[in-house]
């Protein structure tokens, strides 16, 4: 067995290198440009400090940055959970009572186009500048609309025969939702959750910009810039980006576990 396993795993490694190699090379080039080429071209420190200085700033301020990242992540996660669950529940109601859906949907789509971060200073007035809730609400509102619109599409985009089949079994609405509409919606829901994970992080950081606990990541970015500590600001942005990527990856992993049967996921698995 083991003699057979080796060539197979070797082939898998080769495939992995083929798949990820180009991306790794681009990453390396990008980092090298940042570190050496930009300073050589005379890009000033306040525009973009060299990579090594940013990493040094991260190391020097690691405990504050990690604590700040955790605070801001909790705001983002709270908003994500709140906004996504409300949107999912709302979508269920609108899908169940279609006239209600047709009445409200135009406004939902219009509201989706509103630049919601514009409300960030207002939520501070509502909940208090230092309260995490003002950031949670911004993140939640940002998550709400894409999840609502996508979930509703998933709940209602069944083939007519799928519903006729349920009708032929005399299935009550509760069963139609549990066995047909909700499973059908899941690929749509997860696409929306991936978008929402990114939006939640944006909402939380931008919410921080308008004030909050001095430890929060967004507040650290603003105060570092005002103190001309650009390296620290960039290190904080780096932390925010890493959290955003990890958040997205966690949702993508959940997607793979829950809707592994869906063609778009299958295409990604070898």
């Amino acid at each position: 067995m083991s003699t057979l396993a080796h060539p197979a795993s070797g082939r898998r490694n080769t495939q992995r290198v083929r798949k990820w190699g180009p991306a790794a090379i681009v990453f390396g080039i990008g980092m090298a440009l940042w570190q050496w080429v930009l300073p050589a071209l005379g890009v000033e420190r306040y525009l973009l400090p060299p990579l090594s200085d940013v990493l040094q700033a991260f190391w020097d301020n690691r405990s504050e940055l990690v604590r700040g990242g955790w605070i801001t992540f909790k705001e983002a996660l709270g908003g994500f959970v709140l906004g996504c669950s409300l949107a999912f529940g709302f979508a269920l109601v609108l899908a169940r009572w279609r006239p209600l859906g047709s009445a409200l949907m135009p406004y939902m789509i219009a509201a989706n186009a509103v630049p919601i971060v514009a409300f960030a200073p207002i939520t501070n007035a509502w909940f208090g500048t230092l309260s995490p809730w003002s950031k949670v609400v911004i993140a939640a509102v940002l998550c709400f609309f894409p999840v609502l619109v996508n979930t509703l599409r998933g709940l209602t985009s069944l083939r007519p025969e799928s519903l006729e089949l349920m009708r032929s079994y005399a299935a009550p609405q509760r069963v139609v939702f549990a066995r047909a509409r909700i499973p059908n919606s899941l690929p749509f829901v997860f696409s929306a959750l991936k978008i929402a994970s990114v939006l939640a992080m944006i909402g939380a950081v931008v919410g921080d910009y308008f004030g909050g606990s001095t430890e929060a990541l967004g507040v650290q970015i603003v105060s570092s810039v005002s103190l001309a500590q650009y390296e620290t600001a960039w290190a904080a942005i780096l932390v925010a980006s890493l959290i955003g990527i990890a958040f997205y990856a966690a949702v993508a992993l959940a997607e793979r576990l829950v809707v592994g049967w869906h063609p778009s996921i299958r295409a990604g698995v070898d």
Partner: peptide, 11 residues
Amino acid sequence: IVFQSAVLYDW
């Protein structure tokens, strides 16, 4: 009932 397409649930 059987339809023209199989109408199986993908999941």
